[in-house]
Design a protein around this nucleic acid. Sequence first.
DNA 1: AGTTTGAGTGAACGTATGTTCACTCAAATC
DNA 2: GATTTGAGTGAACATACGTTCACTCAAACT
Lengths: 217, 217
Amino acid sequence: MAQPMQRPLAGRPESRGERKERTRRAILDAALALAGETSLVALSLRQVAKEVGIVPTAFYRHFDSIEALGMALVDESFVSLRAMLRDIRRGDPAFSDVVDRSITILVDHVHQQRSHFLFIARERAAGPPAVRDAIHHEIELCERELATDLARLTATAPWSAEDLRILSNLIVMAMVATAESIMNAPPRPDAEKAIIETARAQLRMVLVGALNWQSRT
Amino acid sequence: MAQPMQRPLAGRPESRGERKERTRRAILDAALALAGETSLVALSLRQVAKEVGIVPTAFYRHFDSIEALGMALVDESFVSLRAMLRDIRRGDPAFSDVVDRSITILVDHVHQQRSHFLFIARERAAGPPAVRDAIHHEIELCERELATDLARLTATAPWSAEDLRILSNLIVMAMVATAESIMNAPPRPDAEKAIIETARAQLRMVLVGALNWQSRT
DNA sequence: AGTTTGAGTGAACGTATGTTCACTCAAATC
DNA sequence: GATTTGAGTGAACATACGTTCACTCAAACT
């Protein structure tokens, strides 16, 4: 698994910046893979360096510490997550299959960017404080975005900002839990199918609850 | 913080078993405290020993490994969690304030057994595989218990087992998320009050959804 | 009273850790 | 073509790690 960092055997000579970027990527990928098996807080600089195929000191040319690396991984992981949200938003939300479609897209993205979603789910709870805070902040932003989306959908009978916040928070936490279930599940397709159907039913249940909701605020 | 393990200055001479139990408890407490700041997977045997005030080798008289210690902490933590569930079940579920009361009890227990709930929430995502699996298994049992409680409550218009499973899963995940929010929140009482009110509204929303639910199974 | 038991000790081991420093040597700049 | 720059090297450091082993010595058992 540990590859020495060397020029790709074929191909034109690499510029200095290109080489640096390639090493940086290799570090990020190695850290993502290693953290996927334990956690950032159990990850050592030397482990990462060995996996990348560089000497430990070379690590410092790219990051000040494992924690700084972690912050970069937060940014990167939320690029994946936001790509998913964009995909979900792309469809017509008026169609009755929003729920089914949204869950399908969620599951697809969790598979395609497994390590990013795993990183978010795990380090959200166990990462170094700065990483945890950054993740929570990003999730909060997602909740706010969802709230404005929902506000647009319910423009005819507008809800209070507070109710929108509460509903968004509930939906996001359900989606996070669903993503976690998918990642923890055995790769058997029937096990996954069951999680998907559960998640869909739950999301529908939440929406039914929200539509029959009498605010008390 | 690191106290040498020695006989309490006052008090009758300790039996051999009592002394062993006292050291064992000290190890569990130290591990719980240290894991509360990072995670089990970032916890070293020597750190725990130093915190307890024993020599590293003495650790082996009580546990084979940090992971075995973790499994003991799972058992212990779920004793706290089940005590909470018992407290919640104690009240009359027919009263209309089940939701308010349940959330209050949840929050109280999270405060009184903070380290246990923190352990469950964190190691559920980041612990060693055996610990993660044990925690997920226990949570699944809680979901099943909740499902049978709900079945009893809805005996007049019985739901399908599948719908009960789906609803229980949703409620438990919302409670887990609420507990996490409480533990992550600043200790300011108004911040906590907001989380509590959100959790209550969400739980009510879910129940409204469930009551207006048309099963498709 | 004499013997056994077992929690806790302390030294020692090989290995892994983060960080420092002086270095190389090819690409980038002049 | 000469000079500067900076990613990556390799040795060295103090410290921490898990585990081994032979040990003590007081409580428990005979």
